[in-house]
Design a protein around this nucleic acid. Structure first.
Lengths: 269, 269
DNA sequence: TCACAAACGATCAATATCGATCATATTGCA
DNA sequence: TGCAATATGATCGATATTGATCGTTTGTGA
């Protein structure tokens, strides 16, 4: 077996498991211990993996950060106060007992804080949202089935999910990558597919976007403006953009500036 | 077992409960007390956990474990060591890359600790199992859709769930309320319905029951003995019961006693 | 307060892993 | 084919990790 091929096998193995022993690699490649050690040493100086006693592990440090910690650590802190203000308005639209759908996202996640004292059936495709509601509220939580995608913490299924199709809600809440005259825009085709399924299960579609999203463009249109019942954003929205929504018959809620607290975002554990 | 793997298991265990004893970690990792102490000391200086007399605890001080999030507090501590031993044998049956189904329960939950270093597609209807695997392993996690029932932390759906129908596994692991000549017994009709759906999606059914379950009776039969491929239990099983399984063609695995504590003298009959 | 048991830390022998060296096999090239 | 360069495998001393033992410390309950 060639050196390159062993390296490929070793790197592949290391990606799959947190730690791979020398012995396992010997079995995998049918070569000797000494050779594997040399390979590990070479890949180590190339920084393609990290060498540990007994074997090797993946170099990727985001092993625990970003996964175990906060749901979406990076996006989370950015504009947190603004997102929270938007999320508060979103929850204000809800009445106890009225079923809602929450599509996963950093903005919609903020809704959980205002849902703790409420009681309603909530359907979501977001693992962190379900987790938080389960632990900190008494709402009835329903989850869509499928594979949990770690980057987004979203549950997606290539199949038509009957739980989804049997849940019918008054409102569906979702974020978006962009919002323009052509409608709601997303970046990922997989997300589009999942979100379109959900949209059909609700009377009203409520979109939560901070005002910067009006200037974002993306390649994929999820749905037209006419499908949107309400947009909730912050006061950074420009008149031209508000006008666009009004013309399309979309209700607009401008969340009040996150009050005078400098860092109110520090309230959550 | 290698250092990295032990560390993973220890950290995994520490997340589950507020405090984990040295003895428990010894059982979990099959290594000596001295080694565990060294590991704890190392992880302590790395600030990955806090060392306390008798064991270790999670580093995050405001741990919100007292809430509904804790999986199954009462059942958990009871026979925990035995359940862990059984769970270990269950995971030993698995090969990396081989898809499995884990039905929710206190015994099957223990499997998560031994799955931290593994890599396979795992389908479950248990929210805590999914949560733990998501946070502490690299396995691909798939979840069934439906309402989350808080008492059992199980996700149930009255509908046929296509995610479930499309996932096909080598083995399915489940606990039970009782196991007798008539087969596997459960207490709740809703559970029966959900579990029967899952059973059909796997080649082999592996049942995890501590030996007391052989003397439990329940009103509802989930399936006959013939459907069961393997039973894993502890050494409290009696000859008569073992014979029953043998006659029915069920493989039997008796999990090694959870270490050689002094209590064993008091148990002998 | 005292006695007892559990937990701890240090030490040492046993084991596993590592790194270096050398012999052998394979490859590339003239 | 012959030769050199490189890769591979085996061996062995060096080093690190592990498990058992023992004396000491800490916590608990009478």
């Amino acid at each position: 077996m060639h050196e390159k091929e062993r390296h490929r096998i070793i790197l592949s193995a290391v990606q799959e498991k947190p730690v791979v022993t020398v012995q396992e690699m010997v079995d995998l490649t049918d070569s000797s211990e000494a050779t594997i050690r040399r390979d590990i040493a070479a890949l180590h100086v190339q920084k393609r993996l990290r060498r540990v006693r007994g074997g090797a592990e993946a170099i990727s440090p985001p092993q625990f950060i970003g996964l175990a910690g906060r749901p979406f650590s990076v996006n989370e802190t950015l504009n947190a106060a603004q997102k929270r203000a938007i999320a508060r308005e979103a929850v204000n639209l809800c009445k106890d007992g009225e079923p809602i759908i929450i599509n996963g996202g950093t903005t919609t996640f903020q809704m959980v804080h205002f849902l703790t004292g409420r009681r309603m059936p909530i359907f979501t495709n977001s693992f962190p949202i379900a987790e938080h509601l389960l632990k900190h509220s008494k709402n009835t939580v329903m989850l869509s089935g499928g594979t949990i995608y770690r980057e987004q913490n979203i549950i997606l299924s290539p199949f038509d999910n009957d739980v989804t199709r049997n849940f019918y809600a008054r409102r569906m809440f979702m974020g978006a990558q962009g919002l323009g005259p052509l409608g709601l825009m997303e970046g990922d085709p997989l997300l589009i597919q999942a979100e379109q399924k959900l949209i059909d299960q609700a009377d009203e579609l409520v979109v939560l976007v901070d005002s910067s999203k009006f200037r974002m463009r993306s390649s994929l249109i999820l749905c037209g403006l006419s499908r949107i019942a309400t947009v909730i954003t912050d006061d950074g929205i420009e008149d031209r953009e508000a006008k666009m929504l009004e013309t399309a018959g979309v209700a607009l809620i401008v969340a009040r500036k996150p009050s005078s607290d400098k860092e109110e975002s520090s309230l959550q554990a």
